[in-house]
């Protein structure tokens, strides 16, 4: 999926509801209540935090191009997709990204794999004096322990690892471009990985597209690593999946909620604004379908809000809130978040 396609896909979902910068924050993985709740509202888990390094400059360039092509338009400060834009969205077999699940941790896995392959390759060539491509100490320590633990001096580790990589790369959801980008980023004895620019130029793509294709491959592989079929990569992927996908701060709020504190008490205790704590609750509800919301909102209110939302064809908080003065913004957000989960 190319960058423009991702933007169109997202804008299609938030069309008329959010500003033109909302996709930027989503792709960057901004940990604000608004962005995190949008992930659930609009079912955009795949794209959350996939491009933490994205510059505003590159983003604006892409958005300008979409305006120019008349794929999108700006109306009353929200971004809309045009009919032309909708027809420009190529039908995807399926979205291969899983940003919500990995939050950048996929790169930790990648670094480990890169270093493990480089080391195995060098040792196989009997050239044990090499400069590791991965410099950070955590990665080096992890891979060192990993290799020793797996008895890497016996060559079947190298063979088994190749076998597992092969299997995962053969996944029919991937195409050869994915596989090529993935394998050509790796380095080993006398074989140095290619830079984004080199990969992109060879295939006449932009660097950003090259990175996205690589990430699709990485996510798909991580999604399919299993203890049974790929035990070696499974242990290399230790602690990569986020089990409770909460930000640290929301996690603390969650623990206090579980202990029975009220929102006001938590705000007081943590010296945070009540709005922030409400953001946390939205995040918690987004992450946990079975989190009870009845302490914050009655069943009838949820029904009322959802009814109005579908009647007005909107997810804009102000529009709903204006019609229902007795509920709070927080309650509207809660109801919308929960409703999307029911539709999943």
């Amino acid at each position: 999926m190319h960058f423009h396609q991702i933007l169109l896909f997202i804008i299609h979902k938030i069309s008329g509801q959010r500003s033109e910068n909302a996709p930027f924050y989503l792709l960057k993985g901004k940990k604000s209540g608004q962005t995190i709740q949008d992930v659930t509202y609009f079912q955009l888990h795949a794209f959350f935090s996939i491009l933490p390094q994205l510059s505003k400059e590159d983003y604006d360039t892409a958005i300008t191009e979409l305006y120019k092509e008349q794929f999108i338009e700006l109306k009353e400060s929200t971004v809309h997709i045009t009919d032309k834009g909708i027809s420009a969205i190529t039908q995807q077999k399926n979205v291969l990204l899983n940003g919500w699940q990995y939050r950048g941790k996929e790169h930790v896995f990648w670094k480990r794999l890169d270093l493990a392959v480089q080391t195995l390759s060098q040792f196989h060539a009997n050239d044990k004096k090499f400069v590791p491509n991965q410099k950070d100490i955590d990665t080096q320590q992890f891979v060192k322990d990993y290799l020793i633990q797996h008895n890497f001096r016996q060559f079947n580790l190298s063979k088994e690892m190749k076998h597992e990589l092969h299997l995962l790369l053969e996944n029919p959801s991937l195409d050869d471009l994915h596989r090529t980008f993935f394998v050509y980023r790796l380095s080993g004895f006398n074989t140095i990985g290619l830079t984004w620019e080199q990969l992109a130029r060879y295939h006449k793509l932009s660097e950003l597209d090259a990175k996205i294709i690589f990430l699709e491959c990485l996510h798909t592989m991580l999604d399919n690593i299993s203890r049974e079929a790929s035990p070696l990569l499974y242990s290399l992927a230790k602690n990569i999946r986020i089990e409770t996908p909460l930000t640290d701060s929301a996690f603390k709020t969650n623990s206090l909620l579980e202990k029975g504190y009220s929102l006001e008490q938590i705000a007081d205790l943590r010296k945070l604004k009540i709005n922030t704590i409400e953001d946390h609750v939205i995040e918690i509800v987004s992450a946990n379908k079975s989190f009870p919301i009845s302490t914050f909102i009655s069943k009838e209110q949820v029904y009322e809000i959802l009814h109005l939302s579908s009647e007005l064809q909107t997810k804009k908080l102000t529009e709903i809130k204006n019609r229902l003065p007795e509920v709070s913004y927080f309650q509207v957000r809660l109801a919308l978040t929960r409703s999307e989960q029911l539709h999943e």
């Binding site: 392959v117 690892m161 080993g188």
Partner: peptide
């Protein structure tokens, strides 16, 4: 990619 993977490992 297959050849490349084989060169690496």
């Amino acid at each position: 990619w297959k050849k490349r993977l084989h060169t690496l490992l």
